[in-house]
Design a binder for these strands. Structure first.
Lengths: 137, 137
DNA sequence: TTTTGAAAAAATAACAATTATAAATTTAAT
DNA sequence: ATTAAATTTATAATTGTTATTTTTTCAAAA
């Protein structure tokens, strides 16, 4: 299914007149593989197999994805994490270690969709975050 | 009602062994008066009547308030805005001008409180943001 | 294929918000 | 009024991100 994401991304790029580059592919790849990575983590992951990549390239690709509506940034304290699934779904953010995890609960999601309709303004996106302690150890 | 906030804050400070300083009062004052100010806007507002205040003092007080559970930061793009009302309530964030506005809708809020209970983890706070265009002009 | 022009990547440098550190000042208790 | 600890300030350092310029690469056409 990560192939799907990649294929879709390649197509969308050409479709909109952008070029398909190995760096862009690698960034999407990293986003698929890693959980909710920061720009730094994406860089690290890519450099494990691709000689090196410049931060600007990563930020540029992230911007591109965001503008395409394929990516949402999640601010966690001072870090920005990225999520390749812009579909409506809530997150749980740990106040202790800052981990972001997806909440997969159909009931909550359907309530969320309702809320999106209830919004008194024209909203095209909704963000729901729960904060608490995930008590890791 | 801003007096309430201030009084409560003074009391809580002494209660927990912190000192009541004019700078701290001014920061809370600014938070009450301004809508969803950034640290910079707070600084500006204070300096309109108080000779000058150091950024560190502002950040320090914001941290203090956050730790006291009286303040939540709202990340909007690259800016951090602050909200003195930690009660459960949703925001509408304009993707064009970045304005943050409170949504005052009892129905949405009650649904939110339900969601907080539904959360599969131990959450002590919930954050709901709608993103869209507020078409200003 | 090779050529070619535009787009993208890389290598800096620059920036802004925030955090850390050390010295001076202020609070509030005695 | 004195005093010790807390707080503010001034300053420097850090970090994540953005801007700029040069070099490289992609992909369309010859």
């Amino acid at each position: 299914m990560q192939e799907d994401k990649l294929k879709k991304f390649r197509e969308k790029l050409t479709e909109e007149g952008f070029k398909v580059t190995p760096q862009r592919i690698e960034v999407v790849n990293a986003l698929v593989k890693l959980d909710h990575p920061t720009a730094k983590e994406i860089k690290q992951h890519i450099e494990d197999r691709y000689p090196m990549i410049s931060p600007s390239t990563i930020y540029g690709t992230l911007d591109l994805l965001e503008n395409m509506g394929e990516l949402i940034p999640i601010q966690e304290g001072s870090e920005t994490k990225y999520d390749l699934s812009p579909e409506v779904h809530p997150h749980f953010i740990c106040e202790e270690d800052g981990e972001v995890r997806d909440i997969d609960d159909p009931e909550i999601e359907s309530k969320l969709r309702e809320l999106l309709k209830d919004c008194p303004f024209e909203a095209d996106r909704i963000e729901l975050n729960f904060y608490g302690k995930c008590n890791v150890e």
